[in-house]
Amino acid sequence: MTWSEMQPLLSQACSETFDMVFWSTLIAVAAGLPLGLLLVLTDRGGLLQNIVANKVIGQIVNVGRSLPFIILMVALMSFTRWVTGTTIGTAAAVVPLAIGGIPFFARLVETSVREVDHGLVEAVQAMGGNTWTIVRKVLVPESLPSLIAGTTTTVIALIGYSAMAGTVGGGGLGDLAVRYGYQRFETELMWITVAVLAVAISLIQFAGDFAARALHSRGGRSGPAPKLRLLKAKEPDAAGVGKAA
């Protein structure tokens, strides 16, 4: 296979991966943020304490987190068909990716928001602020550097998942590596895919770290910005599909 043959395949796969990851991240963040906040607010001693709701949400998130993505994807097929009218293609892959990403991001949000000093919440309560004010003016802005780090982790995890989604017709880089690298023994193309993924993940990580750090060190706040520990655990996952070839 020559470069001129590979190039259109690669660029199409890249754009498919980008589409899948972009939309699913958007949905995961939009839904995971309120869910993560609710996990904190409804907990014992929280502003909206509701133990039953907390247990229910916690359980849903746990199930969503612990289910292997490939099973989630298959289990969601009828739901995916109901939403997008099909179970094949990039748009169809966004549905399980988003649903897998929501509980993932929600847990990260929960951890970040829990780290906000309770004294700040109390100060705003003493000013006469209501719960919504506290969420908007304290919990979210104060945990923003950590939330951005969580978003970076989510994007990288979703790139890993998107490789799996690709194998069942979602397209993208994972699909390319399996179809050409594994089934047609095009080792060269497979390695290029791996390289593209590695570069993409490094760039995303760098951008995320930079943004989190910039916000964190605002006003010369001392101490290092929160590190992303999930990256190392997730990276082989993303490349794993390629290595299987």
Partner: peptide, 27 residues
């Protein structure tokens, strides 16, 4: 456990300062 509107209004007329200042670091 939640403060109603009237209580929140009353609180806004009572200032409070804290041992650990409780300033928002993002502002």
């Amino acid at each position: 456990p939640r403060a109603g509107k009237e209580l929140r209004q009353a609180r806004s007329r009572i200032g409070m300062v804290f041992q650990h200042f409780n300033l928002l670091s993002s502002r």
